[in-house]
Amino acid sequence: MKLVRLRYTRWFNILRDGISHKNPIAVAVLGICSALAVTNRVENAIAMGLGVTFVLMASSATVSLLRSFIPSKLRMVTYMVIISTYVITVQMFLAAYFPVISRALGAYVGLIITNCIVMGRAEAFAVRNNPRYSMLDGLASGLGYTLVLIVVGAVRELLAVGTLLNAQVMPDSFTTWTVMALAPGGFFIVGLFIWGIRELIHYHEAA
């Protein structure tokens, strides 16, 4: 019985929306640029996913806390300032404590600033909900994004180099698909994935 009731609680709906029903990549088609760029390796996908999730949660919570002070004309500017502050903080933190990861991610950490998901959630959710739910919404969208990145990254890494998280999986005789390491491979896999998840949740855009 409890499980049935769970389905109607607000936090369950927010989590489900973020991860599947309103998945930022598959349904809203936001943040595609980074999804194509960093998914050639699973470890990059995980690091990028965690970074985006943290920035999403932190910026959603901040926007939500400030929502009654932000002048409506300055909404966008304020979001940008808040998001950039968190991203630059993350970047400095990584450079100080994890120089190797920071080097591997290179410019992509800075590019979280331009990730539409962060701005989209701030405008669509955080600005009219309380901090608790806004943070949950950020977590849900972040997880939805991370999930897609990891699945796409796993397929691409497996086919392009025959490894998973740098551990050899495919037999040595396996011919690697170079196209999967390049941008077109990203488009193929992300496209197939969007189709799959949309079929799964019966989401069809009106013609």
């Binding site: 502050t85 630059i88 903080t89 400095m92 933190f93 450079a95 100080a96 404590y97």
Partner: peptide, 14 residues
């Protein structure tokens, strides 16, 4: 203020 604080904190480490 946040940036100045972060700068002070991370510069020696970087």
């Amino acid at each position: 203020l946040i940036f100045v604080g972060m700068e002070f904190w991370t510069t020696p480490l970087i």
